[in-house]
Write a protein that binds this DNA or RNA. Structure first.
Length: 506
RNA sequence: GGCCCCAUCGUCUAGCCCGGUCUAGGACACUGGUCUUUCAAGCCGGCGACACGGGUUCAAAUCCCGUUGGGGCCGCCA
């Protein structure tokens, strides 16, 4: 009944599509029971890279056979995340929920061919038995009691409308071996694999059936997916064999772990791709970082453009060990990408964030002014959102002055007079450039025999509300004469208060 | 518990397939210095790993076995 030779020696039976010069066809098949998380995104990335590398087709398939948990909103979110990452698909999205007839057909074909049998067991009962077994530390496997029913009894139950699922009859005493593109040869003794359900009693296919039917129907040549599917592979190969379908190549890529080494999940913080977008990560940075989890490019260069990745990507360079998601390195990479952006492009990337704050209109009215401001902040930002926080005073007159900063830098009693003088001198400057400003600031400090650092720090707090930030003279130039003078005069009263309270306190 | 997968600096990893060139290389993080009005960035330097035990061999990070540790799967979820 089983093509034994195939089952015993499947290795070597899968000349890769690449070798056979077939068109490579790969897919990303998320289940819309949640948003796209970074693990899924990386799987999608690897598939996409592989397709582009080999001039193949990357298709999208939505695995929504679990009607209860799937939703259209989740699908939209997943598509949005993929688009944001720049992972465009050539076909699809296909929806499994629209292909149910096909799965039923194949399930019944399997039954007709003698590879499957109806199971009338109550899932709740089986679940109980399973739990009891596990509680006692005993292994549990479905004992195929329904397969032992007489053919006539089976028919009778079907006739009387008793609900049944279709199970695949897994041969025992056979070792199935398959070649995995990243792991090499993987073996499973089929005695450890239970008769799995193909078609549920409600007529919906299980994952095992639907993937195989679709991967075959969509002529998938390479199944690239997470390591968590490695144990499913023998079951799926059994279906391919029973249907006499050619096997695709399999590549199981390592799972991304959290800092505690357990599988990355919500409790490790943000895992949703869209959440990273909203937090101010650049898609090219996330993409680049994700590519490096479990893959290492020959040559060792880590900052890679999409074109670089496509050129360098090879499944053989994918690691077997599970990597840990390191937010620090991601942030470093994001900062790296931010620094590389030309100022005008950077400004455009900031747009959604600026719009949300209501700052975009003014930016649009004075692009050159804001380009320069953003340029000054560039080397200091790790996230796009950093421009809004540490760069608040670059976008609005309504910036807050950090009380701690004031307390730290506005202590000198000579400051009010000094700043007033400085404002006056700056207002008279005809060339408001960094060198001219610097000369003025230093001269004012020197004339009062005050260390220029004292003035500089106080002025920075006045102009930006913070103790840290860009070099003061460039900062002032970029802010502009009017703004600088206005802001300096505006803080004069507060400066005075601080100095007075300081003296009283003594 | 059963089965499968995995194991180089704290983290991502190069090297492992084809043993000697490895007193194990790079990156992030950490850290010292430099520049400097602060903070970054940049530059120069430092710290830091072959999980353990057996074998094979003249020689093992590299090959084999075992142990330990980690992960995954064991659903009429995907």
């Amino acid at each position: 009944m089983y093509p034994a030779s195939c089952i015993l020696h499947p290795e070597g039976l899968v000349p890769s599509a690449v070798e056979r010069r077939m068109t490579v066809r790969v897919r990303f098949a998320p289940s819309p029971t949640g948003y796209l998380h970074v693990g899924g995104a990386r799987t999608a990335l690897f598939n996409w890279l592989f397709a582009r590398k080999h001039g193949g087709v990357f298709l999208l398939r939505i695995e929504d056979t679990d009607v209860e948990r799937s939703s259209a909103e989740m699908v939209e979110g997943i598509l949005e995340a993929l688009r944001w990452l720049g992972l465009d698909w050539d076909e699809g999205p296909y929806y499994q929920s629209q292909r149910l007839a096909l799965y039923r057909e194949v399930a019944h074909a399997l039954w007709r061919r003698g590879y499957a049998y109806p199971c009338f067991c109550d899932p709740a009962v089986l679940e109980q038995e399973r739990e009891a077994a596990r509680a006692q530390g005993r292994p549990w496997k479905y004992d195929r009691r329904c397969d032992r029913l007489d053919r006539s009894e089976q028919e009778r139950r079907v006739q009387t409308g008793q609900p049944y699922a279709l199970r695949f009859r897994v041969p025992e005493d056979v070792t199935l071996r398959f070649e995995d593109s990243v792991h090499g040869a993987v073996e499973f003794a089929l005695r450890d694999v239970e008769d799995f359900v193909l078609l549920r009693s409600d007529g919906y296919p299980t994952y095992q059936l639907a993937v195989v039917v679709d991967d075959h129907d969509m002529r998938i040549t390479h199944v690239i997916r997470g390591d968590d599917h490695i144990a499913n592979t023998p079951k799926q190969i059994l279906i391919y064999r029973a249907m006499d379908w050619p096997l695709p190549a399999f590549a199981h890529v390592p799972l991304i772990l959290g800092p505690d080494r357990s599988r990355l999940s919500k409790r490790h913080g943000a895992v949703s791709v869209l959440a990273y977008r909203d937090e101010g990560y650049l898609p090219e940075a996330l993409r680049n970082y994700l590519a490096l989890l479990g893959w290492y490019p020959p040559g060792g260069q880590e900052i890679l453009s999409l074109e670089d990745m496509v050129r360098l990507f090879d499944l053989r360079d994918v690691n077997k060990a599970n990597p840990i998601f390191d937010i620090q390195k991601l942030q470093w990479m994001n900062a790296e990408y931010i620094r590389q952006l030309p100022d005008d492009v950077l400004l455009e990337r900031l747009r959604p964030f600026l719009e949300r704050r209501g700052w975009w209109a003014d930016v649009q009215a004075h692009p050159e002014r804001y380009r320069r401001r953003v340029g000054l902040l560039k080397s200091r930002a790790r996230l796009l959102t950093d421009f809004l926080t540490m760069g608040e005073a670059f976008f609005t007159e309504d910036y807050t002055i950090d009380p701690d900063a004031a307390a730290q830098r506005w202590t000198d009693a000579r400051l009010p007079a000094l700043v007033e003088t400085l404002a006056g001198r700056l207002a008279e400057l005809t060339e408001f450039t960094a060198p001219a400003i610097e000369a003025t600031v230093r001269a004012v400090a020197e004339q009062a025999s005050v260390k220029s650092a004292v003035l500089i720090h106080a002025v920075r707090v006045a102009l930006t509300g913070r103790t840290v930030g860009p070099g003061l003279f460039e900062l002032m130039e970029v802010l502009g004469q009017d703004t600088v003078v206005r802001r300096l005069r505006r803080v004069l009263p507060r400066l005075g208060e601080m100095a007075v309270s300081r003296q009283v306190g003594r």
